[in-house]
Structures are given as C-alpha cells and as structure tokens.
Write a protein that binds this DNA or RNA. Structure first.
Lengths: 340, 340
DNA sequence: AATAAAATTGAAAGCGCTTTGGATAAACAA
DNA sequence: TTGTTTATCCAAAGCGCTTTCAATTTTATT
C-alpha cells in the first residue's frame, strides 16, 4: 500500500499523511494518531526509492573495494563493518558493499556521488598517496578515512589508531628486556597502518642505537602461512633475533608453529608481541603463554567511524574530524628477558 | 547533470536519450552514438533512485543479520559475501548489509519486501524450523537459503554442501583407521550445517556399531579458545578418544595447542580432521602435520548462491533451484592408525 | 506521384514520496 | 460581533527516470 492510498483511506491529503508519519509539528495530535494507527492496520510501507528521489538523500553508506580482491577477504572487515552497520541501521541508513566487477574503484566513487547512490563512503586501506581523497573532495561526497594518508592531517577526516606509537612502545618493551635484534612481521606497507607500525618499530630501535636490519623483517599478507614461513626464515638465519613483533593475530599461529618447530620456547627463547584487533574467534589471553599484545578493537573503530561519518553527512561544513586512538600495550607471558 | 538536461543539449526527447543509453533497438545507430558521446562528454550520471522508482526494481540484494551479533563476527562471511558481491556488481546490483539496530529481523524482511528496498535476499544460518521461509514466501520476495531448513527440500530454493556426507566420510576414515572413540567439536547445532555434520558423524559410528558418547562432543561457537578448551576437556577424560573431528579451521589452532600441551602428537597419538572453508588466511596443507580436511570453498558457494538468486529474481516462477555440493575429503598427515 | 509499411523519434503520464505556497478552521482579543 | 492571530490541513509541482501510446520521417511498392 502506498501513501496515496493510505491518504485516501484516511480522507486526508498526502501532505498531511506524510507529515504525520514524519513527525512534522504542525500536524494535530489526534490526526497524527489516526494516521499512525491506520498505517499500522493497513500495512503501509514507505517506498525507499521514492523517498530518496524526493529528498535527494540516499540514506546509504558505501564501502567500496578495489577490483583486486585481497582486501575483501580480510576477516577484520567482518568485525569492522559489524560495528558500523549497527550505527547506520539505528539511524535508518543502509550499508552498501561494492566489491568485484570490472569497474574501476574511482569510477564507482564518481558514479555513487554523481548518481546520488550513497550519502557518504568509508575509505579503507589508505595509502600515503591516496587519490581517493582528492576525488571525493572534488565530488563533494562526504567520507571518512579509516587510517591515514600522506595529506596534512587536518585537511581530511580520519580515524586511526596510533600504530606508530603502539609499535614504538612494543619495541621499546622488548629493548627494555634487553633484546637487541627484533624481527618484524608486518602487513602490506603500501597501506599506512603497516608503514606507521614499521616507523614506530624503527623509532624505538634508533632510540636505543640499535641496528635496523631488513633481513629480519617481512611485509605482506597477514596469513597463518606467512606467519609460519617468515618466522622460520627469520629465526633460522645467523644472529637470529630474540624477539618478534607481529602486525596481526592471524600470523601468530604460524609464528608459534615455527618457534615450536625450531625447538624454541615463546617467552623464554624468543619473545613475541602481536597486534590484537579484538577478533572474537581468536583471543590473545587464552594462548599459552598468554600473548603480549598491542590492542585496539576494530569493531569499536567501525562504530566510531560510522558515527563520525553520519555527523559529517549531517553537517558537511562542520569541523573536519580526526581521531587518533591510543593503543593499549598489554604485557603477558610471551615477553621476557633476552636470553644471554 | 540529469537526463532532461542531456536531452536538451542533444535536441532530442528524454525518451530517445533514455532508450539510447539503455540499448533499446529502435533507436537509430547514429543517434545512439551521439547520445553516448555527449553523455560521456558532459558527465551524465543516471540517478539510481529515479530509475528504481520508475522501473519498480531495486537492483539490490539484502543480507539481513539478526539483532544478535554473533553471526556477523563470523570471518567466513567476508569470504562468502566477497564471492557473491562480485556476481552482483557484475550484473549491476548492489549488496546491502543489514546488521544491528533494534528492528526485528522479520520486520526488516517485511519492510524490505513491501517497501521495495531489495529484489531478493540470501538467508544464512538456517535452522530446522526457520520462520523466514514462510515469511519470504508470503512476501513473495525472491530468496535463496545458504544451507537448509527442515522444510521439504524441493519446496524452497537452497544451496548447501553435503555436511552429513562429509562428516560421515571423515568419521568412516577414522574408524577405518581403527579409531573407536572419536571426539566431535561442532558449530552451533541449532544451525543446520552443524546438525547435519553431527548426523553424519553419528551415522558412521552406528555403521560400525560404535557408541555415541555425548561427553566427547562439543557444540557452540567455533573459536580458537573453544577449540583449545574442549579438546583439552575431551582428551583428559578417562577412555579419551584417539581422534577428533572439528567443524572449522578456526578451532584447529586451539585444538593443536591442547594436544601439544597434553604431550600428544597429532597424527600419531591422536588423529585430527577439520572442515576447511578455504579461508585464505588459514591454510590446512601448510600445517605440520598437514591437516586432513573436509574441504569446500565458501567463496565459491557465495558466488553460486548469488547466481542462483539473480536467476530466481529474473524468473520467479521458474524451477526451484537446489544444489547440494559434494565435499572433498583430503587425506593428509594428521590422520593415522589408532594407537594400541 | 500516391500510398503503405517500416523505422525512428516524441509528448506526456506515472512511479511514490516530499515540500512549496498556500487555504481553511479554530482560538483569541478588542 | 468582528477582526486578527495561530493552528491545522491541502493542491499541486517536482525529484529523475521509464514507458505507453502515439506522431513523424524514411523507405518501399504500386
């Protein structure tokens, strides 16, 4: 049933019915109640497309993935978008996923903006030279970056965790324990979270006058297998590190497998710290030894990113939001004194 | 720029321009070319809402999650929807996620259907008594179930893997190796995939006249910690099983941790088989020992589900599709003879 | 040249809602 | 009672596209 029919049933104009249902104050109380009751009774459902056309608002948020699919398989995304979707849904917005297909990602943004398909987008997997910022600014499509780019940090909206600080603190903890050679298993360093983590790691090494050695580092996809393969490679070389810093819990299993295979003991022969995104199927404190982690909830980040974006949509000329979240360093049994 | 303006530029009617851009055969070739060129030159972008209102088609597929959030955190979903989104995007459809908020899931389906927000939905985490089937049939909203319900299997559209057969074969392999007590770590058995897996496991035990012992079983969330905790519990009791069957790779790490802690060796003291959904961050063959698995690609299932749903949308009165996919049993080093 | 058929293009209505620019009714003050 | 103000309700246009039901132009036939 559409609004016209409902209005006819009520012997009211479409204007009055629309206003009654949408909370306009100039509709009388009794009328408002009549309309609501009848809408319920007759099963009236507003047509989202008509509403969007009439208002010029999409009430939808886009998550656009490049045609290259590696980002999409990221299990972090499930949690990230779960946090966000709750916020959107509560505010009457839809969550749109765009993945795959042949269309270039930039072209998708353009089509979304100029065709009015979404009210805003979340930019993920940000790069130093990210062309999306300039494009979205040109298109005047509200957006927020989850992460950062190389642009001046007060010129575009973003939310990030302090990856640099986190890995600097983690590396410092290890150096405080006397570790002089620390391996790093990172994510793709074209993405700024991983770049910042490496920078933090290097900052801490420099502070202690320790060498930066690329041969005890890995950057790439954060999989169990890469965790295993590169931990093994790193620990088997001469002058092997006595500590490892990992960018994701997803690599921890492989890393621990490798350590065990080499007859080493985590927390004794080799210290280990990993970044914990708070994935529920993979908890850090249940491991043995319990893992020292840099911790930040990806789900909470998803929620906050959603809130900031909706505020931005509501008030596009408002202050440009940027939040840098501190990261907890939770010290558990997987870190200890460097062996002699 | 809208279509009216474009038409004005071209000195053509909106009808002709619309037809030219949408491939209607009755538009002359030269006119078609002129329109396409000018649309490109002037940056015309169709308004998706207007198009949807005019055609009555949403060109969107809904994935609706219950308000309870446990399903959404499932990392399998990332891969499942990645497979599907590629299909939808290629066909000009959007992928809509609905998670969280206060609205009841059934109410969301009703609003989607009657408000025309989506052209179809994918039903996930299906139950034996799943009320969504009846509702979607009543609403006449095209859908497909990923999994099965208790309804007669030719009365609703679904795609599933042969969970029962897979776990029956896996259990049989273990009994063939002489294992007489086999532990099962399953998913939530209110969801039919897990129920079918348990049925397969029990079928194989019955075939060999072996006891069905609930004390060596677990069903619940498939997390690393549950894998650890319940493997430990199961293996520490008197008359412990000599083999384990796990419903997800996500539990394998915990299970192996527990086995190691008990001083046992996988493949020697205890055999292990797990279900492998083909998650790229967690491969089965790279483990040591390489894991015997029941294998099926969740991403491929996502793609196929999407194809079947789009066909259903195109032809709602067509034959009701149902596909049961065989599951490979890939035998690797984690299974061996029962110890004496 | 006239007529018929085919090809191409067009006017206007409609999809279902919102909102502009009112009109009308009720309440209040002189 | 009359005039003014406030509250409540309404007609119609428009958002931007598609599609129905034509009209016009071009081509073929007699």
């Amino acid at each position: 049933m559409n609004l016209k029919e409902l209005a006819h049933h009520l012997n009211l104009s479409q204007t009055t019915v629309s206003r009654a249902l949408n909370g306009y104050p100039e509709v009388g109380k009794a009328t408002r109640r009549r309309v609501a009751d009848e809408a319920n009774r007759l099963g009236y459902r507003p047509n989202a497309h008509a509403r969007r056309l009439a208002t010029g608002r999409a009430h939808a948020i886009g998550y656009v993935f490049p045609s290259d699919r590696t980002v999409m398989i990221d299990p972090l995304f499930s949690d990230f978008v779960a946090g966000a979707a709750d916020v959107y849904t509560s505010q009457g917005f839809e969550t749109l996923l765009h993945a795959g297909g042949q269309e270039d990602e930039m072209s998708v943004y353009r089509r979304y903006a100029e065709g009015g398909a979404v009210d805003g987008v979340v930019v993920q997997a940000s790069h130093v030279d990210d062309p999306r910022i300039a494009l979205l600014n040109e298109l005047k499509l509200p957006y927020i970056v989850h992460g950062r780019t190389g642009d001046a940090e007060n010129t575009y909206p973003w939310l990030d965790i302090d990856n640099c600080g986190a890995f600097q603190k983690a590396t410092k903890l290890l150096t405080d324990f006397g570790h002089k050679r620390i391996g790093l298993l990172n994510g793709l360093e074209t993405i700024t979270f991983a770049l910042h983590r490496r920078q933090g790691y290097e900052n801490a090494l420099r502070e202690k006058g320790l060498a930066i050695d690329e041969s005890i580092r890995f950057s790439g996809l954060m999989t169990e297998e890469n965790g295993y393969r590169h931990t093994k490679r790193i620990l088997q070389q001469p002058n092997a590190p006595t500590a490892l810093l990992l960018s994701s819990m997803l690599m921890v299993w492989g890393a621990m497998r490798a350590v065990n295979e080499l007859g080493l003991v985590v927390g004794k022969d080799v210290s280990m710290i990993a970044h914990d995104d708070g994935l529920p199927f993979l908890s850090a404190d249940g491991l043995v030894p319990a893992l020292t982690t840099t911790s930040s909830s990806i789900r909470a980040a998803g929620s906050r990113v959603a809130e900031l974006l909706l505020e931005r949509i509501e008030n596009p000329e408002g202050e440009v939001p940027h939040e840098l979240w501190n990261v907890d360093l939770i010290v558990r049994g997987s870190t200890g004194q460097a062996p002699r």
